[in-house]
Amino acid sequence: MQDMGNGMMHFAPHVTRDRVISKFPKCYTPQACLQMKDDWDSQAKAACKHRTDRHQGWDRLKMSKAVVVGDLNVGKTCLIKRFCKDVFDRDYKATIGVDFEIERFELSGVPFSLQIWDTAGQEKFKCIASAYYRGAQVIITVFDMADIKTLENTRQWLEEAMRENEPGSFSVFLVGTKSDLLAPEEHQRTERDAVKMANEMKAEFWSVSAKTGENVEEFFFRMAALAFEDYVLKDMERGITPFSIGGRDSIKSDRANLEDPQPKLVKMNCC
Rank of each mutant, 00 (worst) to 15 (best):
N6G: 15
T150F: 01
E214I: 06
T16Y: 10
K81L: 08
Y231S: 11
G7P: 12
P263I: 01
A198Q: 03
K93N: 08
A203P: 02
R60C: 08
K23Y: 08
Q31A: 14
H50T: 13
L61K: 06
I251Y: 00
K267M: 10
A12W: 01
P261E: 07
D3T: 09
P111G: 04
R189K: 14
A47E: 05
V138Y: 03
F24D: 03
M197W: 00
S253M: 07
R60D: 04
I21A: 03
V216D: 11
R163I: 11
S113K: 07
R248M: 06
P25E: 07
F88M: 00
V74Y: 05
H55F: 07
Y231I: 01
Q262H: 05
C127W: 01
A146C: 12
T141V: 15
K149P: 00
R189Q: 13
N6E: 09
M197R: 10
I251G: 07
I102V: 15
R54A: 14
F228H: 12
L258A: 14
M36E: 13
D41V: 03
D3Q: 13
V68I: 15
I251T: 12
H187G: 07
V87T: 11
H50R: 12
C84Y: 09
A47W: 04
C84H: 14
T241E: 10
D3N: 15
S179M: 14
F11N: 13
L226C: 09
P261W: 01
I96M: 11
C78Q: 06
E186A: 13
K252N: 05
F228Y: 14
A120R: 08
D180F: 02
E185K: 12
E217G: 11
F170D: 02
F220C: 12
T77R: 09
L107Q: 01
G239K: 00
G168Q: 07
K124W: 00
W117S: 01
R90C: 05
E200C: 09
D193C: 12
G168E: 01
R17W: 13
D53G: 09
T119H: 06
K196A: 15
G135Y: 02
K45A: 14
L107W: 00
S209L: 06
A46Y: 11
R192W: 04
Q122Y: 03
D18T: 09
G97I: 02
M201N: 00
V69F: 05
A46S: 13
M1W: 04
R163T: 11
R192G: 10
S22D: 10
C33T: 15
D18W: 02
Q115T: 12
F170V: 05
M223D: 06
D86K: 04
H55P: 00
C84A: 15
M36D: 13
A46G: 08
T95F: 04
Y92L: 09
T16M: 07
F173M: 06
L34D: 11
M4G: 02
E159W: 11
T95L: 07
S253L: 02
A46W: 08
K45S: 15
W117Q: 02
R238T: 09
E152A: 15
Q137S: 15
A120T: 08
W157V: 03
E200F: 04
C84S: 11
A198V: 06
R51H: 04
Y133V: 04
L107V: 07
A131R: 13
Y231A: 08
W117F: 08
V266T: 06
E101I: 05
D59G: 02
F105N: 05
A203T: 03
D118S: 09
K62N: 11
